[in-house]
């Protein structure tokens, strides 16, 4: 129960940070902090916790979106499993470079998954998605991943102790 509360609290804090960034930064310049959180839980606590974090993150995002409900939740669930799969081949414990590479691949996977689900409802051309979503989101999320990981690690060490 305590762990669930911690996950909920961290997801909520991260979502609030994303909302604040959305107010301050121009569009396409918002890193996907919730995705980093899902990857972090997967590496730190395993797939189950990552799934819980993914589902809660997805529900938060779906509530604010005007698209069909459940798209983000589905994309985050896929991402949690995708991280588990990639972890086996890419991740080396303690190596920052492998963590960053993992975030990069997972973000590419997440954006692609979301785009493919979106195609069922709206027609989004690939060049537009590539230049306005994939490149900025993957770039920014990968760029800030080391810093965010460090902060999450500090939080986790205190909260899970």
């Amino acid at each position: 129960m305590y762990l669930l509360c911690v996950i909920l609290g961290l997801v909520f804090a991260t979502f609030v940070s994303e909302c604040v960034l959305a107010q301050v930064l121009p569009s396409w310049h918002i890193p996907n902090l919730l995705l980093i959180l899902v990857v972090f839980f997967n590496l730190y606590r395993g797939t189950r916790y990552s799934l819980v974090a993914g589902i809660v993150s997805g529900l938060f995002k779906d509530s604010f979106s005007a698209g069909p409900f459940g798209l983000y939740t589905f994309a985050f669930i896929i991402t949690a499993f995708f991280t588990t799969l990639l972890k086996m081949y890419v991740y080396q414990p303690g190596a920052m470079a492998s963590r960053v590479l993992l975030v990069f691949l997972v973000t590419v996977g997440y954006v692609t998954t979301y785009w493919m689900i979106q195609l069922m409802f709206t027609s989004l051309a690939f060049p537009s998605v590539f230049f306005h979503i994939l490149v900025p989101e993957v770039g920014l999320t990968t760029l800030i991943a080391p810093v965010v990981f460090k902060k999450y690690r500090q939080c986790a060490l205190r909260l899970f102790a």
Binding site: C19, A22, I30, K61, F64, A66, G67, Y114, Q118, I133
Partner: peptide, 13 residues
Amino acid sequence: VGRDPSNWNETVI
């Protein structure tokens, strides 16, 4: 009172 933080949608509350 609110704004969707995602890059995919443009929604306000």
